[in-house]
Amino acid sequence: MQDTDAMTDTPVTEMSFEQAMSELEKVLGQLERGDVALDESIALYERGAALKKRCEEKLKEAEEKVAAITLDADGAPTGTKPVTGL
C-alpha cells in the first residue's frame, strides 16, 4: 500500500469517529488516484469498508445519546433515559 505511513496501526474497532473518518478519506483518496496495484486496491477497499462501518456505528451511538437526553420545563437537560426502538 502506498503512503502506508498515512495509515494508522490502530485497530478500526478502537478508533474514534474522527480517526476513522480521517483514515477513510485517505483510503478513498488512494483508491481514486488509482496508483496502487490491484491487490493493494482490494486491501484498501476492505479497509475502507471497515472504516465506513465504524463511522456508522459511532454516529448511531451519538444519535442514541442525543435522543436519550430529557429536558425540563425550561429546556435544560435533566439527565438521560434509556432509548428503545432505535
Results as ranks from 00 to 15, higher is better:
Thr78Met: 14
Pro11Cys: 01
Ala62Gln: 08
Gly85Ile: 05
Leu59Ala: 06
Gly85Asn: 09
Glu14Ile: 04
Thr78Ala: 13
Val27Tyr: 01
Glu56Leu: 07
Thr70Leu: 05
Glu56Val: 08
Val83Thr: 04
Glu64Met: 09
Ala67Tyr: 03
Gln30Leu: 14
Glu61Val: 05
Ala6Trp: 14
Glu14Gln: 08
Thr84Ile: 05
Glu23Leu: 06
Val27Trp: 02
Leu71Met: 13
Leu28Phe: 15
Glu32Phe: 10
Leu44Ile: 07
Gly85Cys: 05
Ala67Pro: 00
Asp35Trp: 13
Met7Leu: 13
Leu24His: 03
Ala6Gln: 15
Leu59Gln: 11
Glu23His: 01
Ala62Ser: 11
Leu71Gly: 09
Leu24Ile: 01
Val27Ile: 12
Pro11Arg: 11
Glu61Gln: 06
Leu51Cys: 03
Glu18Asp: 07
Leu71Arg: 07
Glu32Pro: 07
Glu61Gly: 03
Lys52Ile: 05
Thr4Arg: 15
Lys60Leu: 06
Leu28Glu: 14
Lys65Met: 07
Gly75Ala: 04
Asp3Cys: 11
Ala20Asp: 00
Val83His: 11
Asp39Ser: 15
Gly79Leu: 06
Ser22Leu: 08
Glu23Thr: 05
Leu31Trp: 08
Val27Arg: 00
Lys60Arg: 12
Glu57Lys: 07
Lys81Arg: 09
Ser16Cys: 11
Met15Thr: 00
Glu56Thr: 03
Arg33Met: 07
Gly79Asp: 02
Met1Val: 15
Gly29Ser: 13
Val66Trp: 03
Gly85Gln: 06
Thr10Lys: 12
Ala43Pro: 05
Thr80Gly: 01
Met21Phe: 07
Met7Lys: 08
Lys58Met: 02
Gly48Met: 00
Asp74Val: 01
Leu71Ala: 08
Leu38Pro: 12
Ser22Ala: 12
Ser41Trp: 03
Gly29His: 13
Val12His: 00
Gly34Leu: 06
Gln30Trp: 10
Ala62Asn: 05
Gly79Arg: 02
Arg54Leu: 00
Lys53Trp: 08
Thr13Cys: 13
Ala76Leu: 08
Ile42Pro: 03
Lys26Cys: 05
Val36Ile: 11
Gln2Cys: 15
Pro82Lys: 06
Met1His: 10
Gly48Arg: 02
Asp72Val: 08
Lys58Gly: 01
Leu44Met: 10
Thr70Asp: 07
Thr80Phe: 09
Asp5Pro: 10
Met1Cys: 11
Val66Leu: 07
Val12Met: 01
Gly34Lys: 12
Met7Ala: 09
Val66Glu: 01
Leu24Pro: 00
Leu31Asp: 03
Ala20Trp: 02
Gln2Asp: 15
Ala68Trp: 02
Ser22Tyr: 09
Ser22Asn: 10
Glu32Lys: 14
Ala43Ser: 11
Lys65Arg: 13
Val12Asn: 02
Asp74Asn: 11
Glu61Thr: 08
Gly75Glu: 03
Glu40Trp: 04
Thr8Gln: 04
Asp9Phe: 08
Thr4Trp: 15
Leu31Ile: 09
Met15Ile: 02
Glu23Phe: 00
Ala20Pro: 00
Asp35Glu: 15
Thr13Leu: 11
Tyr45Pro: 11
Thr70Gln: 10
Asp35Leu: 07
Glu32Thr: 14
Ala62Val: 01
Ile42Leu: 10
Glu56Asn: 13
Gly34His: 10
Gln30Arg: 13
Ala20Cys: 04
Phe17Ala: 03
Gln30Met: 15
